[in-house]
Amino acid sequence: MTESRATRTGTLHIMADSALHVLKILARFREKYPGVGVTISQGNTATVTESLFSYEADIGILGELPPSRDFETVALNSSPISAFVACGHPLAKRSTISFSDLSGLPLVMREAGSKTRKKFEEAAAAKGFAFAPAITAEGREAVREIVASGAGVGFVSAAEFGDDPRLRRIPLEDEAQMMMDETLICLRERRGGKLVSAFLAIAQEQANEMESDG
């Protein structure tokens, strides 16, 4: 009875590296379980997994799976890393951009340990390029605001770019080497909980629909 009541009046705690990846799932979940409260916090891979292990979060969304068999997973999407600039930037009218185009330009990057930054740097190194950021900012929103001010070129997965009239996304020529995979995870031991199970079922349903459309 307690778990049955949970799907009517419980609370689901989600921690995500970006809430954008879970918005459609969340909308379906709220439509089906309108009485359930949802809290969403932001964190990187380390904080997401720590929150799951400490039971502070029920569901995690992240771009890099931790090396553990303790998790149940649902693959959400995969999208390339793109460059982005302010609309008034000289590169704003380019249809694509290469690593050589970025040489000598001020780059705005996430903090060390960011999956986006790591993927970009590894792909650049494979082509013989090494980039040092002119500005390092902690968090996706901080990078976005700095780039919007015209201070440099930023990088983000295409799925997380969103809609911002101040910014222009520019695909990278080597984007196939810089794919960001987003995955929903939960502790395997909590998979049977009513709220967690309901959310995972909706996530898997959407993932199956996307695969069919693809």
Score class of each variant (00 low, 15 high):
Ser95Ala: 14
Ala148Arg: 07
Glu111Met: 09
Thr136Met: 09
Val108His: 14
Val108Phe: 13
Thr116Lys: 08
Phe99Gly: 06
Gly88Arg: 05
Ile135Asn: 05
Ser149Phe: 06
Ala130Cys: 09
Val48Ile: 15
Ile135Asp: 07
Gln42Trp: 00
Val48Ala: 12
Leu91His: 13
Phe99Glu: 08
Arg140Glu: 14
Phe99Arg: 06
Leu107Thr: 00
Gly139Ile: 00
Leu76Ala: 08
Asp70Phe: 08
Ala75His: 10
Phe129Glu: 03
Ala134Trp: 04
Gly113Leu: 11
Ile59Ser: 11
Phe99Val: 07
Gly63Gln: 03
Thr136Tyr: 04
Ala46Ser: 15
Val108Met: 13
Asp70Cys: 05
Thr45Asp: 13
Ala126Glu: 01
Ser114Ala: 14
Ile59Thr: 11
Met109Lys: 03
Glu50Trp: 07
His89Gln: 05
Ala142Gly: 13
Asp101Leu: 09
Ala83Val: 03
Thr39Asn: 06
Ile146Gly: 09
Asn44His: 13
Ser51Trp: 05
Glu50Ile: 09
Arg117Ile: 04
Cys87Ile: 04
Gly113Tyr: 11
Ala130Asp: 02
Glu141Pro: 00
Ile59Ala: 12
Ala126Val: 00
Pro90Glu: 05
Ala151Trp: 03
Ser100Val: 13
Pro67Val: 15
Glu72Leu: 10
Phe129Gly: 01
Glu64Thr: 04
Asp70Val: 04
Gly139Met: 00
Ile146Tyr: 06
Pro66Ala: 15
Leu105Trp: 03
Val38Glu: 05
Ala86Gly: 13
Glu50Ala: 12
Gly152Leu: 04
Val153Cys: 14
Ser82Glu: 02
Ala132Val: 05
Glu64Ser: 04
Ala46Asp: 15
Gly152Thr: 10
Arg140Leu: 12
Pro106Glu: 07
Phe71Cys: 06
Ser114Glu: 12
